[in-house]
Amino acid sequence: MKILVPIDGSARADLAVQYVLSQMSNWVSKPEIFLLNVQWKVVNSNVKFFIDPQTVQDYYREAGLQALAAARLLLDQAGLSYQYHIGVGTPAEGIAQYALEQGVSQIVMTQGGESNLQSLLLGSVTSRVLSLAPCPVLIVK
């Protein structure tokens, strides 16, 4: 069983990790846990013309690691094996694509990690994932 927990770096997102940890004893075999952070693609080709690719990569990696830090700490403290991944793209589409590629059996996520203005303008990532995901999605309230 592969469980994907998308992490956006908000404190709410880590609730999904806590939920997965609380359910560990319910699974017969230990599930494989995947953490995923998708960074919005804010660097376009105009910018790439002036900034070297390494700096851009470093920026995305640093921002991604920062977002994943709290969730990783929870799993480290629980002494579990896991995989973590940082990608760049549109979050909901990226999460669905990663779930498909990894053959994930379930996505566990929380609702409304983004700010009010952002979710008003961009729509909620969680509801986009619900409609795009190739597998069941569990929403932690």
Binding site: K30, V38, Q39, K41, Q57, Y60, R61, G64, L65, R72, L75, D76, G79, L80, S81, Y82, Q83, Y84, H85, I86, G87, V88, G89, T90, E93, G94, Q97, Y98
Partner: peptide
């Protein structure tokens, strides 16, 4: 319509069972 996800980092954390 949408560019595919680009990979930045992929790591596995293994712990003895």
């Amino acid at each position: 319509a949408h560019a595919p996800l680009e990979d930045v980092l992929d790591e596995v954390v293994k712990r003895p069972e």
